[in-house]
Each structure stands twice: as structure tokens, then as C-alpha cells.
Nucleic acid binder design. Structure first.
Lengths: 134, 134
DNA sequence: TTTCTTGCAAAACATTTGCAAATCG
DNA sequence: CGATTTGCAAATGTTTTGCAAGAAA
């Protein structure tokens, strides 16, 4: 079942970098942080490693704003909320009500297997800032 | 308020193409369909037009699977569900319960302004096909 | 004529691929 | 050894940019 590949040095290092980051780094961010540590792997290796780690369930790929995929070491089911003012990404652990999902399934005829939700709004810090500005 | 630009020929044609499509075409799809009609504008013009039409509220940009942005002439609030088997994209008009949104706002501290939901599952046709296969 | 649009080609990104060399098992 | 993984550079796909020429107000 767990047809594991090897947790090689690049893979282990990249997993560690993402795990220590709370900001959902992109591949480019990972490369920057590798450089900051004084080590560096080929682009292809970084992308391959991120794909490998995602397939193994050790990371989750998330698509937020912007073109680049970002990676999250929190693999538990959760969603994201992004601040339209400062870009800060929050985690959302409150799952959707089952009745709502059932209604969608009934109306569309699709069987629902997975959901990816992205909320947009204003984070607490920016809300405070907005009030001060007025 | 409605600081409108001009609805030029390229813009009008591209809006028409997206409006007549029910499959949320990407910029590349639009270019293909333009060619099929025997007319063709510069890449930049297609991208500019799509951005313009989106800003004017005549189209909506949607990010589904894949790298390319796709465009939807249904600008009313709704969400999407994609079949993981055949890729067919369905529309979801059942909005989320307000209590759930309130709970998320309370737990994250964010003010929620907008949501982008992508459901994944199996469409009716593919579900039938799956049953037949067994 | 002043401003907005278009066309074109090049640039900018994000990501993948092909292949030889290195490493793992 | 045979299979997997890496590095590198080039290719791919998507979107943007710079700028001159053209169309609109």
C-alpha cells in the first residue's frame, strides 16, 4: 500500500522547510529558503520533491491567489482564508454542514468527494488598521 | 461610477464567444474559437479584453483545475463542481449557510467578503458509467 | 489632438522534460 | 547490478509588457 520512495536529502530538507513555515510557501519560496540555508538543489529537484511529498501525503498542495502552487505541511482537512489587504492566509478548520453538501449533491447530481474552499476577506490586524485610518 | 471603456470589436466578439460557451473557456480556448470563426486578434488583445470584460463585470474569472484561468459569462454568485473523471464542470447555485460563515468569521477573526468554492466529485454520466463497468 | 486600443514580439513566470551522471537498494 | 533520483539546460504553457501604429472621443 505505502509504496514509498526514498526520503532522500533534498526531499527531507524540503519537507522540513515547508513544515517549519506557516505561510504556505511556493516552490520559489522553498528555493529561496534553501539558499538562505546555504544549500540549493536544482529547480527540477525542488518541483519533483514537492510533487513526491504531496503524493506521499506528507504535504498538501494549495492554490491560493497568484499563479504559483503553494504547499502546506498541515495535511489535515482544512480550508484557507486570505486577507485581501495584506495577503495573510488563515486556516479554517470549521467544516461545511453536511446538509448543505447533500443539497448540492442532490441538485447537481454529482457525488461530492472533495472540496477546496478559498475565503477572502480582511484579517483582524487590517480591520483594526482600517478603523484607525478613519 | 461606471467608468466604461469602449466595447470594441475584439471585446464584443470575445464576450460573445464566452457567452455562447458553457464550458468556461480559457484564453487559449477563446483564441481557438476565434480562429474557428476565421478571425483572430493578438494574444495581448485577447488577454486585455478578458481582463477588461472581467473588470466591467461582464465576465467572471474562475480558477478550476489546471494553470490557465477560465472565464464564465454567468456572473451571478455561484460556485463550481468538477468531475474528477471527465472534467465536466457543473454550476452550484446553493449558497453556503450563513451560520457556517458566521462561525468561520468568529473563529478566524476575519471579515468574510467573498468565497470561491471548488467541489470535486463524479458527475452523473461518469457515475452511471462506473456502475456499468462493474 | 489627446486618450484609449490593438498588434507584434519579446519578456516574465511557473513548471515540466530529456537525458546523462550520481545514488540507492 | 538495476531502479530511482538528481542536476542542468532547454522546452512548454500562460500571461504580461513595451512600444509603435491605429481607432475613438
Amino acid at each position: 500500500m505505502t509504496r514509498k520512495g526514498t526520503l532522500t536529502t533534498p526531499r527531507k530538507t524540503i519537507l522540513e522547510i515547508v513544515s517549519l513555515s506557516s505561510d504556505h510557501p511556493s516552490a520559489a519560496d522553498v528555493i529561496d529558503r534553501l539558499k538562505a540555508r546555504g544549500c540549493c538543489f536544482a529547480y527540477a529537484t525542488v518541483y519533483n520533491s514537492l510533487r513526491f511529498l504531496t503524493q506521499e501525503g506528507l504535504l498538501r498542495e494549495v492554490k491560493l491567489e497568484g499563479a504559483a502552487s503553494r504547499y502546506d505541511a498541515r495535511v489535515e482537512e482544512h480550508q484557507h482564508i486570505i486577507c485581501t489587504s495584506c495577503g495573510k492566509v488563515g486556516e479554517v478548520f470549521v467544516g461545511p454542514p453536511i446538509e448543505w453538501l447533500n443539497r448540492i449533491a442532490a441538485e447537481t447530481g454529482y457525488r461530492i468527494d472533495k472540496q477546496e474552499f478559498l475565503f477572502k476577506g480582511v484579517c483582524p490586524a487590517c480591520r483594526t488598521a482600517q478603523i484607525v485610518e478613519e
